[in-house]
Amino acid sequence: MILPVYRLTLRALLLQRRTIMLAVVVLAPVATSLIYALARPGGSDTVDFYSGIVQKLFVPAVAALVALVFGVSAFGDEREDGTILYLVATPQPRLELVVAKVAAAWTASLVLLVPSLVLSGLLGLGSAASLRLIGWPLVGVVLASLAYCAASSWLSLKTRRPVVIGVIYILLWEGSVATYAASAAKLSISAYGSAFVAHALPQSAPPVAGLVPSALVLAAVVVLAAWGAARSLARTELP
């Protein structure tokens, strides 16, 4: 019975005004790539440029922010307007409700992120564009955004300020602390997402883990966050 809740949540997420703002956010890497494509200096390395866009802007900021907002909204908006009562007062297992919500948030994120990444790749790489150069970063973004969605859904049921906490985690921990301290990167979702990017694009620092360990860590984040969210949903005070 996941499908009706998934559809309902996806509809709610895509209809909200915030989605337009997020669409503007995902346009940033596209616009940057477009400007680069139009004013490309002679002899510049398009792969280096694209690598920078993906690793410094797309994975750690754009994908993280979009997935955070959708992940938080999946439960947060319904908690705020009280419609969550109509879902909770049903015999649906709590984990199924969470899975439907996270899947909807993930889909909504991908609706914005995938075209943005592909377009940025095509514009930034120009004639160097290939399935490998765009495909591996895409895998990283897809997996990392799932982990962000699950974690932020859990956060939205645990705290009243999930967006603030999420932004602090993304900007302060992942964007600052984890870039200087290698051990801190082990607690960074974007670092594991970047491991897939590193498989195809040159990186300034070695990836935090290989492809399989990174996929396993991201999967573990998803499972633990979904389990925690289901537990919180059964215990949280509802409006």
């Binding site: 209809l15 009280g82 015999p91 409006p239």
Partner: peptide, 20 residues
């Protein structure tokens, strides 16, 4: 949650999803 098969609820301050 299986108890909710037998329970119907009309909350006071929570209108249903407006877009449905």
């Amino acid at each position: 949650p299986d108890v909710y098969r037998r329970v119907g609820i009309v909350p006071d301050h929570s209108p249903p999803w407006p877009f449905l």
